[in-house]
């Protein structure tokens, strides 16, 4: 059996990514998606791949603070934009308020959709601290959860909602 580096034939590119505040340089094939790059060479497996075509939201990360499906972007196309993954949401000793609220309201069951769900909710809360339940529903309408955590996700976000200043 001929043994050679099979990826050599497909061509590799050097990509520089800004991930969770750190500059990371990786070698990937041009066809590698951001989700694959995060989970593979970057070792950030908190980002999940469940449908691999932008339908389920399990791979949601932030690009310059906005939620995107990382399976729908090529790693080579990210450029200088800041990537934030679930691993970059909490500080060393403090959870993001959305993460704490998910724990308090049991807004997790199997947990596979949870990182994407948390990223969508946290982005909404940053943009719209007074978000109403329908805003939350819209923000997570692209995040599928087969266990059915939606009611508790809504409860978690209700807990965090700041009433608009009078």
């Amino acid at each position: 059996m001929q043994q050679s580096d099979p990826s050599a034939q497909f061509g590799r590119s050097t990509v520089t990514l800004e991930v969770n505040g750190t500059t990371r340089v990786i070698e990937v094939e041009a066809r590698t998606t951001l989700a694959q790059a995060l989970r593979g060479p970057l070792g950030l497996t908190g980002t999940k791949i469940a449908c691999d075509r932008g339908a389920c939201g399990a791979c949601t990360v932030w690009l310059d603070g906005s939620p995107v499906c990382s399976c729908m972007l090529l790693a080579v196309g990210v450029g200088h934009r800041q990537v934030t993954t679930i691993e970059g949401l909490a500080t060393a000793d403090e959870l993001h308020p959305v993460q704490q609220a998910f724990i308090d309201e049991d807004a997790v069951q199997c947990g596979f959709c949870t990182p994407g769900m948390v990223m969508s909710c946290a982005a909404l809360l940053n943009d719209q601290p007074d978000c109403q339940p329908d805003d939350v529903r819209a923000a997570i309408s692209g995040n599928l959860c087969r266990c059915g955590t939606y009611p508790h996700v809504l409860a978690a976000m209700h807990r965090l909602r700041k009433d608009p200043a009078p």
Partner: peptide, 21 residues
Amino acid sequence: RSATRLDARDKVTGASRFTVD
């Protein structure tokens, strides 16, 4: 009583290790 799910923190931080990981 409604004790907090023991693995909730790992799940909300992405630390849980599924087979795909």
